[in-house]
Amino acid sequence: MSSTTLTLATRANASRRGNKLGRRLLIISAWLVFVLFLLLPLLIVLSEALKQGLGTFFSAIFEADALAALQLTLLAVGISVPLNLVFGVAAAWCVSKYEFRGKSILVTLIDLPFSVSPVIAGLVYVLLFGAQGFIGPWLREHDIQIIFALPGIVLATIFVTVPFVTRELIPLMQQQGTQEEEAARLLGANGWQMFWHVTLPNIKWGLIYGVVLCTARAMGEFGAVSVVSGHIRGYTNTLPLHVEILYNEYNHVAAFSVASLLLLLALFILLLKQWSESRINRLKANAGEE
């Protein structure tokens, strides 16, 4: 008896030691991957950008075409993210609060942009709105420019960022169920009051998290936007496209300077994300206690 317990104990000890080793190895390799594949390239971007000093760095960022690209990027984000927010909330609401036919198809379709290559997304709009496309001739007659202009860039951005808000909200809203809303209705709240005072506060942090992810992706989108942009410098080039142009013009320092501007914007968004994530976790913990 005693000998068996002893061997069991040593075995447990050994496996714990093994676990410890395994854990260390895993942590080290995670760090290694992080440093080699993420941190190092980012540092290279920064060091290349600052190679010729702060003066060249700032002159690349404040150059007219770069500023126009920044403006266009912010404008595209400023239009597409609010639209995605409204659509995302509406879609998540439908899916999580109602039962209807074709619901699973709708949920699958919302995920479509994750699986479709962004280039295809862009080409779809060219086929639809291009001069040779489906409604192109009508658009031309009425002098409406969709692709190779701001509307096309916004459409392409919306297409690739549609799932972010919805995907974030559906599990959250499903978890919360409909009880609180039902209670609000019983107490006499109208639909809008219920949404504003019950639903929205409940999903607030999840919503912010989704919006932040959506913004990050919208700012960095290259493929889809590249197809519909027309690459008119100073007019239809977004920041990522501008980086490519500068790089192709042997203008490495400027390319990396503008790239690091994108990087700074991304880092800022990452901080926002971290903050909203922590708020969500706190919310979940509170819900668990009750």
Binding site: L75, V77, G78
Partner: peptide
Amino acid sequence: ALASALITGP
């Protein structure tokens, strides 16, 4: 954000 972008647009 939208307003500022529109005002300062190309």
